[in-house]
């Protein structure tokens, strides 16, 4: 199925909820809507998997660039 600009996609994965939360806050401060989709799992079972930061398709490239500039994404 074809993606629309408003579809929610993975922007980045983090091992720690703290880092994911800061990344989300950095994006929000840039007016880019962002959500952490499995924060509960990340808190309860940290080793079980990465914390996923999600954004709109239309924002993904800019969001990743902002996170790189913010030293939050390599």
């Amino acid at each position: 199925m074809k993606q629309t600009p408003d579809d929610i996609v993975l922007c980045a994965q983090f091992q720690e909820l703290t880092r994911a939360s800061i990344a989300r806050d950095v994006l929000l401060a840039e007016d880019i809507p962002a959500v952490i989709d499995n924060s509960v799992m990340g808190i309860v079972f940290p080793p079980a998997g990465a914390v996923r930061l999600m954004v709109r398709v239309a924002d993904r490239d800019r969001a990743r660039e902002i996170l790189r500039q913010g030293a939050l994404l390599r």
Binding site: T18, R19, I22, D25, V26, G70, A71, L72
Partner: peptide
Amino acid sequence: ALLAWLEII
């Protein structure tokens, strides 16, 4: 939050 960011970077 800013301090948390600084702690990471």
